[in-house]
Design a protein around this nucleic acid. Structure first.
Length: 545
DNA sequence: ATACGGACATACTATTGTCG
DNA sequence: CGACAATAGTATGTCCGTAT
């Protein structure tokens, strides 16, 4: 494996080792991107260091961010646990590997739910580490503990995509961690490691607030600073992609990375050059410079967008489009068995023209679409993309629609098209119908029971008899539990006693059970239908859901 | 196959020192 | 001030053996 340090001379510059064997190349291209949760990436949660950082009490990061056009100062404090210290680059590696496991779960099930189970060996294989080394296993345990115990106290830095708000809160990354062989909350023994992601993580993962990272290239990086920079660069470069250059103050960079701030240029270069050169050799950066700020008092780092950044951007767009994920096709209501009928054809054509697509192009698209393609859904997805995007992002909306339809992009599950909404509403309606039907049946059943008991009492017992029976029942009840007298008033007690008598009587009668009653009602209804009578109560939605 | 402890090797980092 | 070398401490990882 290439990141086995012993196997490779670290002094050799990465680009000299780049010609890889074909197998590695294949891996790199087949695995594509791992999506990691955006907040941790942008926070600088992981500190580049090889050593454990136990001494520091906290790591504070100051941000300034544009929120609704206003510049807002935001603050995040990362609070390490005394025992395990700050999360470092090695933790980021494992975290990325976990994200890969999570992504796989998400791909298979469509949703991620707590807890997330994985074996240590699984994680080690993703990282390319030996699965038979005890040290590696204990490292994973320590990592999970560190992630669970490190707190983030933020003031508007963490974004909750589900609720669409910036959180000012204090929380952990992992809510809970149970390692192999320990007891689970339900009392069973864990057959592998289980992690409970904190709610905000889960929410953001499920609502696609994610950042793509090329794990294969990432794994080849040797320098810790460059590893820590990868997710940060992804955000910074994306924000400045139009300019082609990104500048960060040396002071701020040191703060985010938690590295020592040196006063002399030579020292700064000495520390940063190997990492920045490494990033450059992998194409993340085209170039980098360290310059004095305009005031002359401080230094700033200028980073130029590398070829890999543009390439990845294009690859992702070609794969899935903005914010979309490659997924199993979403089931749609459209017919799959025949090509578009002329009626549907003309209505779709109209929809496209309405959105500014030329009639000729629209016709072309419809002719070349795949059978069953959810074109209307794709158009609506385009609508929502344009609605959500900042003004001026899509200067050519028609182009987006054409792209969405031509590439037959798969919609994210979180997006609800009008078709899907109708289906969901119908489902909900059916559920409500069923619910009300069940309630009606229950009501009818209790009426049926009451009537049966009433009739029995009327036939067999006198009123006096009933009264004395209730009286003795009341005394019996009080005998059983003396506290009843304090808790309930005379009237409630009386009702309780009467009910008790009735239930005693009910036991002697042969009364249908609820399921039997339901069956009888159903039979009654069927007879009514076959007899041609009007249906009074709603039909039972048998196994329809 | 997975988990893990111990022995061992090594490469990374910060620090300090030296020299022009 | 800049560049480089030596040094120490330790994080990181492998190999091997053993248990489940």
């Amino acid at each position: 494996m290439d990141n086995v340090r012993a196997a490779q001379n670290p002094r050799v510059k990465p680009h000299e080792t780049e010609p890889q064997n074909s197998q590695q190349k294949f891996l790199a291209s087949s695995n594509d991107f791992v999506h990691i949760e955006k907040n941790l990436a942008s926070l600088g949660f992981f500190t580049p260091s090889t050593k454990k950082i136990k001494g520091s009490k906290k790591k504070t990061i100051l941000f300034s961010k544009e929120v609704d056009g206003k510049k807002v100062e935001l603050r995040a404090v990362i609070l390490p646990s005394a025992e395990y210290g700050l999360p470092i680059t090695a933790d980021q590696d494992k975290f990325l590997a976990l994200q890969k496991i999570i992504a796989d779960i998400r791909y298979q099930k469509g949703m991620v739910n707590n807890p997330i189970g994985f074996t240590s060996a699984e994680l080690l294989r993703i990282l390319g580490l030996k699965v038979n080394a005890g040290k590696n296993y204990s490292d994973i345990l320590e990592w999970a503990k560190r992630m669970t115990l490190t707190g983030i106290s933020s003031e508007g830095v963490v974004y909750l995509a589900g609720k669409q708000v910036w959180a000012s809160d204090t929380f952990h990354v992992f809510e809970r961690f149970v390692s192999f062989g320990k007891e689970m909350p339900d009392g069973t023994i864990a057959d592998k490691n289980y992690i409970w992601l904190s709610e905000w993580q889960l929410e953001n993962i499920n609502s696609n607030h994610l950042l793509p990272i090329d794990l294969e290239t990432y794994k080849q990086l040797k320098n810790h600073i460059s590893k820590a920079l990868v997710p940060l660069l992804q955000i910074w470069l994306y924000a400045t992609r139009a300019g082609g250059c990104f500048e960060k103050r040396y002071h701020d960079l040191c703060q985010i990375l938690n590295i020592r701030q040196y006063p002399n240029l030579s020292r700064i270069k000495e520390k940063l050059a190997p990492s920045l050169e490494e990033l450059k050799s992998y194409g993340y950066l085209a170039n980098w410079k360290i310059e004095k700020t305009s005031s002359g008092a401080n230094y700033k780092i200028a980073l130029y967008h590398g070829e890999k950044f543009h390439r990845d951007q294009r690859r992702r767009l070609a794969q899935c489009g903005p914010g979309l994920e490659k997924k199993a096709p979403v089931e749609t209501l459209q017919d799959n068995d025949h090509l578009i009928s002329s009626e549907v054809h003309s209505s779709l054509l109209e929809e496209m023209v309405k959105r500014g697509v030329g009639e000729a192009t629209a016709g072309d698209l419809l002719r070349n679409c795949t059978p069953g393609q959810p074109i209307l859904d794709q158009l609506e997805w385009g609508d929502s993309l344009i609605r959500q995007a900042p003004r001026g992002k899509f200067y050519n909306p028609a182009g987006l629609y054409i792209h969405l339809v031509r590439e037959n992009l798969i919609l994210p599950e979180s997006f609800e098209s009008s078709q899907k909404r109708r289906l969901r509403e119908a489902l909900q309606q059916a559920r409500e119908d069923e619910e009300s039907h069940r309630l009606r049946l229950e009501l009818a059943y209790s009426d049926y029971k009451k009537e049966l008991i009433d009739r029995h009492i009327q036939r067999n017992f006198s009123k006096e008899h009933m009264r004395s029976w209730a009286q003795s029942k009341r005394l019996e009840l009080l005998e059983q539990d003396k506290r009843l007298k304090d808790r309930w008033n005379e009237q409630t007690l009386q009702v309780l006693a009467e009910n008790k008598v009735r239930s005693d009587i009910a036991k002697r009668l042969s009364i249908m059970t609820f399921p039997e009653f339901c069956k009888r009602e159903q039979r009654k209804q069927q007879r009514a239908i076959t007899d041609g009578g009007a249906v009074q109560s709603p039909t039972l939605l048998e196994n329809s859901l």
